[in-house]
């Protein structure tokens, strides 16, 4: 029975059909999705922290309104993705527990600190830019709820990247000090942004099944290259320099060649030794615990009113 199911399942995938929550799916497909989508959701939620850090210090009312709207979007994106994960039979509480205990990961990029206002520009431009490349590809993922969440997120995300690029452009063309801040932010965020696409294909343990099942549609290396090709020209245009001496247009491949990524740093941060790993999780735990009484009160109120105690 299960062998038959597996053949039908793979045929559906091969012919480009979406898998829906009630459809039969292999256990490993389900597990892979729970891991990937929840990691994606956690990244959106934790990603609010480095940016939230600058809301009170935004340089103008306009910048502040925009940043608040952006951070609110990230919360929304986290919730779309939690919803999609929950259709696979895991509860929100389990997901949160996995994040807080460190069993589930989130994107390492959010363990870097935001030191100046230019970092907010760099995050929008580079981090959201890299996320968009990845998410545009994932619109074609085989699991229906994940794909639909991606469509929605991509629509909202492009404003995020533009607001970041606008900040960088203004600062780069501002005073020499502002220009220096913009360049410094680019220097610090460039390499971690490239790491966001994950290890090279040859070293990635999850790639093969993910491609066969069309959970992923393009490989880490292809997406990284696409991001680099797009971004180099954007940096040129606003007078900033990508911090990579080996970066060079290759007329044969029609792509930019680039220098070596420091994977040791990547794994250090993944394994908890980044600048802000502890702070990010501790913040999450304390705000979750501080909200406990609100959730309890809301549930108690619903129970009471359902039982007719407070129904007018």
């Amino acid at each position: 029975m299960s062998a038959d199911n597996e053949i039908i399942f793979q045929k559906k995938i091969d012919s480009g059909l979406k898998i829906e929550p009630k459809d039969w799916m292999p256990d490993k497909y389900r597990k892979h999705l729970i891991r990937q989508i929840s990691q994606h959701a956690h990244s959106e939620i934790i990603g609010m922290q480095p940016e939230g850090n600058w809301i009170t210090r935004a340089p103008s009312l306009r910048a502040k309104m925009v940043l608040i709207a952006k951070v609110q979007d990230e919360a929304g994106h986290g919730l779309y993705l939690y919803s999609a994960t929950e259709t696979l039979g895991i509860t929100r509480n389990e997901l949160i527990e996995q994040l807080q205990s460190g069993k589930a990961k989130y994107s390492s990029i959010f363990n870097y600190p935001t030191l100046t206002w230019a970092d907010i520009g760099a995050i929008g431009w580079l981090v959201d830019g890299a996320a968009i490349v990845n998410q545009q590809s994932l619109r074609g993922t085989s699991f229906g709820p994940y794909s639909r969440a991606m469509v929605r997120i991509c629509k909202e995300e492009s404003f995020h990247q533009r607001q970041g690029y606008e900040i960088m452009s203004k600062m780069s063309n501002g005073t020499p000090e502002q220009h220096e801040m913009a360049q410094d932010a680019l220097n610090r965020w460039w390499w971690p942004s490239l790491m966001m696409f994950g290890p090279h294909d040859a070293d990635s343990s999850h790639t093969s099944n993910a491609m066969k099942w069309k959970i992923k549609r393009e490989t880490n290396d292809d997406l990284r290259q696409l991001f680099i090709d797009r971004t180099v020209k954007q940096a040129d245009l606003i007078g900033l320099e990508i911090p990579d001496p080996d970066l060079k247009w290759n007329p044969e491949t029609k792509h930019y060649d680039f220098g070596k990524i420091d994977w040791e740093e990547f794994w250090e941060v993944v394994n908890g030794n980044g600048f802000c790993n502890k702070e990010r999780i501790n913040n999450h735990i304390s705000s979750h615990e501080e909200g406990q009484w609100v959730r309890e009160a809301a549930l108690a109120y619903a129970e009471k009113t359902q039982n007719g105690v407070e129904n007018e």
């Binding site: 919730l79 919803s83 259709t87």
Partner: peptide
């Protein structure tokens, strides 16, 4: 559109 969590209709 998707789903959400809430304890009652208004929420």
């Amino acid at each position: 559109a998707g789903n959400i969590h809430a304890t009652d209709e208004e929420m």
